[in-house]
């Protein structure tokens, strides 16, 4: 029973998902088809990849990494710019470039206890300026002549594995791997300790700066993977490609049951959160609600969920931190 209760957060989000399936069916007869379900999965795949990394930052008690959109754009641009080295080296360069931002974030926030929100906001601002300046405000195009590395690169997003697009498989892999790391490894356990109480983690002999560093590195890794994929999808690299993924990812993470205060939640919930956002967006599109108004709804959902979490914490008398 206790176990069941502790999983309520996770189960709850799937309850919401089922409810949305019913609502969607009511809204449109075309909603509950295999094709539309696949469309939804495809639409949220990139979000899921970013959320799988963002979840670690939230879980570690650092709320959000707002620099992830710029990490996405940067890794994509670097991949395109290094395609002359061959596809694999370019992918490695792109992902490493993105992760270097995460390493910097993790070092500053872990070592000097910079405010994670303000610091990553500043980094995002800096990176946008840096990318616009370096590439003169231009988009960066790969050479997509048949047989070139560029052609192979833009093919990545368009690959299917069995019935599923590659991006969906990547999302499921990242979330699955994330679940394993979060719950079964030393790093995952130490992240939970740091997220639950930084001071207690310090006095327990946990190397807190290192754990924090790794969390931001993991987040940047996931965002870099998503950045490569979104660049492949758009067939070009440009500074604004990741826009909006910061807030959407935190929303997915938080409605998936990962507490903004840290230390609670899991990847199964994050997957649920990602699916709920996908379903909600899809239904609103069916209803003819424009994307700006969809943002309004997403914002309201976030506020309500965070409000409920805080209320539950207070009701439990555990908001003493």
């Amino acid at each position: 029973m206790k176990k069941l209760l502790s999983h309520m957060g996770t189960l709850g989000i799937y309850g919401v998902a089922v409810l949305l399936l019913v609502v969607g069916r009511v809204v449109s007869a075309d909603f509950l088809t295999a094709e539309n379900m696949l469309t939804i999965l495809n639409a949220v795949a990139l979000l899921g990849v970013v959320a799988s990394g963002m979840a670690f930052v939230t879980y570690s008690g650092h709320m959000a990494d707002l620099s992830l959109p710029s990490v996405m754009a940067f890794s994509g641009i670097i991949t395109v710019a290094t395609l002359s080295l061959g596809l694999l080296p370019a992918l490695v360069c792109g992902v490493l470039a993105g992760m270097s931002i995460g390493a910097m974030n993790g070092f500053v926030i872990g070592r000097f206890r910079a405010n994670p929100i303000l610091w990553t906001l500043a980094v995002a601002f800096f990176m946008e300026g840096f990318m616009r300046f370096t590439w003169s405000n231009n988009q960066v195009y790969p050479d997509i002549a048949p047989g070139s590395a560029g052609a192979a690169f833009i093919g990545i997003f368009r690959t299917d594995i069995g019935p599923l697009p590659l991006v969906v498989v990547v999302m499921l892999l990242m979330l699955g791997l994330g679940q394993l790391v979060m719950t079964k490894t030393r790093f995952g356990r130490e992240t939970r300790f740091v997220g639950s109480s930084r001071a207690a983690a310090v006095t327990s002999g946990i190397h807190v700066p290192r754990v924090v560093m790794l969390n931001f590195l993991v987040a940047a890794f996931a965002a870099s993977v998503a950045g490569v994929l979104i660049t492949s999808m758009n067939k070009l690299g440009v500074f604004y490609l990741g826009q909006g993924y910061d807030f959407k990812a935190v929303t997915a993470v938080v409605i998936g049951g990962v507490m903004l205060s840290g230390g609670r939640g899991n990847m199964l919930g994050v997957l649920g959160g990602v699916l709920v956002i996908g379903l909600l967006t899809n239904i609103m599109t069916f209803m003819g609600i424009t994307s700006f108004r969809q943002n309004i709804v997403t914002g309201i959902v976030f506020i309500v969920v965070v409000g409920l979490q805080q209320y539950r914490l207070r009701a439990g008398g555990r908001s003493s931190e």
Binding site: R192, S196, S197, A199, T203, S320, E321
Partner: peptide, 14 residues
């Protein structure tokens, strides 16, 4: 113990 020692929001086992 409350501020520095324990993880109040984590179970006894943890």
């Amino acid at each position: 113990r409350k501020l520095q020692g324990l993880f109040l929001r984590l179970p006894v086992s943890w």
